[in-house]
Design a protein around this nucleic acid. Structure first.
Lengths: 120, 120
DNA sequence: GCGCTTTAATACGCCTGCGAAATAATCGGC
DNA sequence: GCCGATTATTTCGCAGGCGTATTAAAGCGC
């Protein structure tokens, strides 16, 4: 309950962040990241592992093919990796990467920085 | 300089917002909004009118066809409308709609609400 | 061991957005 | 008035994501 942010400030924040991302001043050049992809990435980096396709799909309320495809594209960008769960080989464990961690960190810094510059 | 938000809180905020949007608890059902589309919408609703295709494209650093197509899709959702500038009929003036205003307002409320619930 | 379930990935047809180039309409200087 | 410049849109081929249905692999209960 510690952060006080008016709706107006919230919009300005969102707008500033989106603008930087689109202008390619954001972490990297991914101007057409969707909320879906972002949410999957955030889940992997913010929630406690291990992460399975099923778990992510359930959390987001989307189908498993959606998650599989998102992991394909995030994997191509080297933001996540996959490996089989040896305990139950039906499962796939999604893991973080150095590049992904950097990306997420920079994204957090961007948002925090934009918040700092908001008008009262 | 009035808002203090740590990078960690910023990420949590972003994640929470994205999750709600994806789960369709957000303003409306647009889970695959991209940063590009969002940024265009925000420009129209937060920046001072009038808004032309050229102006928006310049602000975002994208080409004009990108803006035209985004306006097509945003228009189909009734979040914006277009009309010719009578003073200079080459220009198109992008205008807000009731539905779009409501959408943006709800988005601001969502972000503000999520911020309120952040851990210190 | 053999169904039955569960997990993830793949196949299919569709739709949307992209960049680059071409087009249509309008303006403005001369 | 005409011609080059400007504005927005359209066209083209292409790449990627979607949902649904299907497949492949692995586990579980009896």
């Amino acid at each position: 309950m510690s952060i006080v942010l008016s709706p107006q400030q919230a919009l300005r924040l969102l707008s500033d962040v989106a603008l930087d991302v689109v202008r390619d001043k954001g972490p990297q050049n991914h101007p057409d990241f969707t909320f879906r992809q972002l949410s999957i990435l955030m889940t992997i980096y913010l929630e406690k592992p291990p992460h399975t396709v099923r778990g992510i799909a359930g959390r987001l309320g989307v189908t498993k093919p959606v998650v599989t495809r998102a992991l394909d594209s995030l994997g191509a960008l080297e933001l996540v990796t996959r490996r089989r769960d040896e305990a139950d080989r039906r499962n796939v464990i999604v893991q973080r990467t150095v590049k992904g961690a950097l990306f997420v960190e920079q994204l957090g810094d961007l948002v925090a920085d934009k918040a700092k510059g908001l008008a009262p």
